[in-house]
Amino acid sequence: MPFDNRNTLRMSAVIILLGGMMSVAQADDDHEHHEGGRRAVATNAAWQEECGSCHVAFPPRLLPAESWREMMSGLDKHFGTDASLEPAVAQEIAAFLEQNAGKRKPDPVAKPLLRISETRWFIREHDEVPQRVWKNPLVKSPANCAACHTLAESGDYRERNIRMPK
């Protein structure tokens, strides 16, 4: 019957379309993470594993290359804890961080900033966060991105996924 044929045709079109959409979504998940809006950000397995074991693996573009170089040369005294790595692993991560670092030129005279939370960008982005949120024991530290950025683990810091703890 012509009616049946039309329906079958429609169904097939829907299935093909859905399949296509799913494979695009899959590719998206595999190759990129979103951060600060929908910009694609590079990832690296060693960076994710090592930097991500004590805190969220912070996106490389949040600090300039000079800062990452300084950070990676002092991992045994990393903000009060020993975060030392095998030289080969440290080297791989340092190269990844520097290649994908923020492009803004830092002040050549000042010492490179090591805390992302001290950058002008971070302070501006977070200026509407009330003090009581920072002091909330569920937040505790500005390094605890995931306290409010619910999908920070997957590199998603978009506004719509922010939930400040009460």
């Binding site: 004590c54 805190h55 009060g80 569920l138 505790k140 530290s141 605890n144 995931a146 306290a147």
Partner: peptide, 12 residues
Amino acid sequence: PANSGKHAKTSK
């Protein structure tokens, strides 16, 4: 140590 812990600084 049967429970999940929390990083003393970052709360991870």
